[in-house]
Simulated assay, not measured.
Amino acid sequence: MPYITTTDGAEIFYKDWGSGQPVIFSHGWPLSSDAWDVELKLMADHGFRAIAHDRRGHGRSTQTWLGNDMDTYAADLASLVDQLGLKDVIVVGHSTGGGEAVRFAAQHGRGNVVKVVTAGAIPPVMIKSDSNPDGAPIEVFDAIRAGVAGDRSQFYQDLAWQFFGANRAGSKISQGQRDQFWRLSMQVGLKAAYDCVAVFSETDFTEDLKALDMPMFIAHGSDDQIVPIADAALKSVQLVKNATLKVYEGAPHGIAGDYQQEFDLDLLEFIRG
């Protein structure tokens, strides 16, 4: 299997499909690159080089004790880009991966990242504070940590319902999709899963967003129960110089079903444009 090795010795697994301009996908917590398989195939089928990696601690990458922080995640992505010699990169990130894509583009991608796409992404910052009074209280994230540290298998099964909006009337999300979420979640190391709760809730991307000067497409579901749109996309679009926001009415956090079909068409159009 293909891996790159980071400066601290972590081995980062990646998929590399097709050829052409590189489009790199960053997955959400607590998943892996497998979550992007449909989009990877879509991009490769349309003449792009589609790449997705397993974040350290997740999937098939090394379960490091240290380095479960956003700066290291972005540096790992920069190592992947450097070692593969990628130029004119387009980065796409979902949820926590959206934060990773934004930080990478702002701090490592000057002159090389040409477009950024996020979906249900965590920026600018999720946790409630004096400077972010509309955020979620720390008790919300403490409960997630407790679920991860306790019966994480059942926690991930329960979380899948909110993740995909399967708890909403009329949801068409299948048992198979919820099972896949659980399967990928169970592959993340406990330390990485636990540490990453603070990463996705407490990291402030405000300055990263302000630093972006390339075109950015921000996608978000109006019924996202994991990363509420009012705390995320509606604020992010105000901070980026050249950003377009599309709100997917009634869509959940997880990219699946009708939301996935519409988003994939928009993604392809934005990347081609």
Rank of each mutant, 00 (worst) to 15 (best):
V38N: 14
M1N: 05
R183C: 00
P123T: 04
K241A: 15
G135L: 05
D130R: 08
S185L: 01
D208C: 02
F48A: 06
D8A: 12
I255Y: 00
D34T: 05
H253I: 10
L86Q: 14
I138N: 13
Y194F: 15
G165C: 11
G47M: 13
F181S: 03
I127F: 09
R272L: 09
A143I: 09
D158Q: 14
E249K: 14
F181W: 07
S174Y: 12
Y194Q: 04
G165H: 11
G28P: 07
L77K: 08
V199P: 02
A75V: 02
K191S: 02
Q63T: 07
S236V: 03
A243Y: 06
A166W: 02
F155G: 00
G18Q: 01
L66G: 11
D231N: 12
C196S: 12
I51Q: 02
G170F: 07
Q162A: 14
T96I: 07
F48N: 09
S61M: 00
A230D: 15
K241T: 09
A256W: 05
S79Q: 06
Y156E: 05
D195C: 10
F163L: 13
P133T: 03
G9Q: 04
V125W: 01
I138P: 04
R272V: 03
T203K: 04
A121P: 10
L265V: 12
M216A: 08
L212Q: 05
E11W: 00
F263A: 04
N242E: 04
N68T: 06
V114R: 15
E139Q: 13
H220Q: 10
R55N: 03
P228W: 08
K235N: 05
D195S: 13
W161M: 10
D224I: 08
A192K: 03
R110F: 09
W161E: 08
